[in-house]
Write a protein that binds this DNA or RNA. Structure first.
Length: 602
DNA sequence: GCCGTTTTCGGCCCGACTGTTTTCAGTCG
């Protein structure tokens, strides 16, 4: 059972309690919803957390829910859940998936309309809506009936494309919306928020915040966005639309005086905000997207008559930094606002200084078009073109790491001839552009038995090797662990490329004992690559953090197969920041001379 | 059901929008 299935099960339980007695079970309902939320957003699978004994560390998971989760991992079901599910009709659950239908509405519909078949529930509901049966029900009306029909259509459509967007795709939607909004002269500041600002590898919907003295006209302008399917809602301070591609965009507008509070609120994550507000409450403060209300007589240099809004009865914050400072905390970088220890450290003013794009001095994993007759894909740009791009990025050095020559039609003599020819080309280019030093690397396959695809003589022609898994992804965990450590054991193997092999929305990470691998890396001075390719963003951030705790060095690479892809370094850096990486953890922030020393393991 | 910078008991994040209501309930983020 994967995380989203577990989350759905917990939400189903919350829904049942809502039906049973939403007053009596109010806090249980909140608890189940909160646990569902954290599990849905966890970057590691429940099964893995269970195996590592870390389930109890999830915020919102206490003794009771923990025991249910353990039962679920061990047996695949939870007896208590199965019993309680019997208290409502089976057809109740599928209706919860329709946007705009919550527990109360779903229960009313299945009961009054006598919808019994779970598999046909949505079809049945649609039929009854078309007949006009829903508008007649008490508490419903014509609009509600139309809304349900619309939502069912979008649910069916969305099921095909409910896959979350890759980050660059969401970035491009945000850019289009932002450039549309910037044409409105009432827009003072504008920024993308939510998971986009936290730089999560996949994005569900796009959140945009605007500061304006005239929210109504901004929202009116927003609803005129040309590439929309329809407007979902439009109020006085927020609005939502569906783009023609079927993606939801939410807009929030506030006055410039409380833009800081708005940024904070809609950046999330939800778990971060709940923790922050609970903490604020203990100080007698109440937080919202509009500002901070004081419950008792709280004194604080950020609570002044100057930023007090008498009309609303709250203190306003133009800058997000002041909002955090008011709580006695450091400003927290959006990438780590996941309630995984950042609030505690911000209170102690001990947050790490995270790496930035400008710290990067070179890219060590790029593929040129030099025909090395590789086992996998060749790059499309020449060494010199890549080198010029590196120069424009102000890099000190650039590593070429083409795939090794394919093993089925080359012998080791042919390998060395090809590698020498590639090296000669690199030497020539090195002499022509002096500002960017080129490094002779190779991306070498780790075979299933842990051996590398080239021999020692060939390896000696290189400054170092990136070793990667490109085949047999489903080896048993212990065999995969042995394989990777085997590949890294070579003296010239310096970096583990795209460590878990995941392809977002396409292929899951393979299984390996990362604790063991990271300890091997630490003890033998090997680095873990953070691969910046948007469909990889590998490893996931929780593994990066684990590697750092053990003391493993990191390399951030683009794995570029073309010059344009060299711009994707920013995604690797964002991924590193989500894993709490600092400049000093990263090998390719070193100067050229220090990097060469590291490559030679000295 | 969860949780701890007052607490292992007694609290629990906060507000916007819509539809069907004539003062509020349900849903969502």
């Amino acid at each position: 059972m994967n995380n989203s299935e577990v989350a759905r099960l917990l939400r189903d339980i919350a829904a049942i309690y809502t039906i049973k007695d939403s007053q009596k079970y109010f806090f249980q309902i909140l608890a189940y919803q909160r646990a569902a939320e954290t599990i849905e957003n966890s970057s590691s699978e429940i099964k893995d957390l269970y195996n590592e004994g870390k389930l109890k560390d999830l915020p919102g998971v206490g003794p009771t829910i923990l025991s249910y989760l353990e039962e679920m991992v061990k047996t695949g079901k939870v007896t208590h859940f199965e019993q309680i599910r019997k208290e409502v009709p089976e057809a109740f659950f599928p209706l919860l998936l329709i946007s705009g239908i919550g527990p109360k509405t779903a229960f009313k519909l299945v009961s009054v309309l006598h919808i019994n078949n779970k598999d046909q529930a949505i079809n049945e509901l649609e039929k009854r809506a078309i007949c006009g049966d829903i508008a007649k029900l008490e508490g419903f009306g014509l609009k509600k009936e139309q809304q349900i029909l619309q939502a069912i259509r979008e649910y069916r459509h969305g099921k095909m494309k409910s896959i979350r967007m890759l980050l660059p795709f969401a970035d491009s939607i945000a850019e289009k919306i932002i450039s549309h909004l910037k044409k409105c002269k009432e827009v003072l500041y504008i920024e993308a928020l939510g998971s986009l600002r936290r730089r999560i590898p996949t994005i569900g919907d796009v959140d945009i915040a605007v500061a304006s003295k005239n929210p109504k006209s901004v929202i009116a302008w927003f609803t005129k966005y040309p590439y929309k399917e329809r407007i979902i809602e439009a109020g006085s301070s927020s609005s939502s639309l569906l783009t023609s591609g079927g993606k939801q965009v939410d807009l929030m507008v506030q006055s410039p005086w409380c833009f800081g509070a708005l940024l904070q609120h809609f950046t999330g994550s939800k778990a971060h905000n709940i923790h922050l507000r609970t903490y604020a409450q203990s100080m007698g403060l109440s937080l919202s997207e509009r500002g901070i209300k004081t419950k008792q007589n709280v004194k604080n240099k950020y609570l002044t008559t100057r930023n007090y809004n008498k009309e609303l009865g709250l203190f306003e914050f133009e800058k997000e930094e002041d909002f955090y400072n008011c709580l006695g905390m450091q400003w927290i970088p959006p990438e780590i606002r996941e309630d995984s220890g950042e609030i505690e450290l911000a209170i102690q003013h001990k947050l790490p200084k995270l790496i930035e794009l400008s710290d990067i001095k070179g890219d060590l994993h790029t593929h040129s078009s030099f025909n090395i007759e590789p086992s996998h894909d060749l790059g499309i740009n020449s060494v010199i073109e890549m080198q010029k791009k590196a120069e424009s990025l102000k890099y000190e050095y650039l590593g070429f790491a083409e795939h090794n020559p394919s093993s089925n039609n080359h012998n080791q003599y042919q390998y060395s001839r090809l590698i020498n020819a590639r090296n000669d080309l690199i030497e020539q280019c090195n002499n022509s552009i002096k500002s960017v030093q080129l490094i002779k690397l190779l991306e070498v396959d780790i075979k299933p038995d842990g051996r590398l695809s080239i021999d020692d003589d060939c390896a000696n022609l290189l400054d170092g090797m990136i070793v990667s898994v490109h085949s047999s992804f489903s080896l048993p965990k212990s065999a995969m662990t042995k394989r990777i450590i085997g590949g890294l054991s070579h003296r010239k193997a310096r970096i583990l490329g795209h460590p878990t092999g995941r392809l977002i929305n396409q292929r899951a990470s393979f299984e390996a004992d990362w604790n063991e691998i990271f300890h091997f890396c630490k003890n033998n001075n090997k680095a873990i690559e953070i691969n910046a390719s948007p469909s990889r963003l590998d490893p996931p951030e929780y593994l990066t953090r684990e590697a750092l705790e053990i003391g493993v060095k990191i390399v951030i690479n683009t794995d570029s197969h073309a010059v344009d892809q060299m711009d994707l370094m920013k995604y690797g850096v964002m991924m590193a920041r989500r894993g709490w990486v600092k400049k000093e953890d990263v090998v390719n922030t070193l100067s050229f001379n220090d990097l060469i020393k590291w490559l030679r393991d000295k």
